[in-house]
């Protein structure tokens, strides 16, 4: 039980640069592994609803090349899976309310809440552990 399994992540992000940075940052700083990614709403929904795919956490950007992260959230509610969080540049109060109404567990601002997201991932990966960041204090 104490052995942490890597958390399986699915990332919906239309910028390849951010996707790569995010993957690198998360995999380095938390026990996670990115098992899939998508750049638009339809391929994201397809992947999420595919029965063979299993995931623990979906990180969704609101603003996508085509479609919207909100649509992804709405569809993901029908998929069996883990937590869903929104990681966006537009974490205004409205967007937060809307995302939470669509079933998002948390909403993180891309610029100011990256650390919070990393901590959130770390906590999810070690559910039994006390909420303690992976890095030494």
């Amino acid at each position: 039980m104490s052995v942490a399994l890597p958390l399986k992540l699915f990332i919906v992000e239309d910028s390849a640069l951010i996707l790569e940075s995010l993957r690198a940052a998360l995999e380095e700083l938390a026990p996670v592994v990115v098992v899939g990614s998508a750049a638009d709403e339809s391929s994201a929904v397809r992947w999420l609803l595919e029965p063979g795919n299993s995931w623990d956490l979906a990180i969704v950007d609101v603003f996508l090349k085509s479609g919207s992260g909100l649509g992804v959230l709405a569809s993901a509610a029908r998929a069996k899976g883990g937590k869903k969080v929104v990681f966006t540049n537009y974490a205004t109060r409205d967007v937060r309310e809307r995302c939470e109404a669509l079933g998002a567990d948390r909403v993180f601002d891309k610029s100011s809440e990256l650390d919070d997201l990393i901590d959130y991932c770390a906590r999810l990966a070690e559910p039994d552990a006390v909420p303690q960041p992976a890095s030494p204090a």
Binding site: S15, L17, I18, S21, A25, K110, S111, I118, S135
Partner: peptide, 18 residues
């Protein structure tokens, strides 16, 4: 521009932690 700035932001976060 947004992606560049965000990536830079990630890098600084990683630097801080690593």
């Amino acid at each position: 521009l947004g992606a560049l700035l965000t990536a830079a932001k990630f890098d600084s976060a990683r630097l801080k932690r690593s």
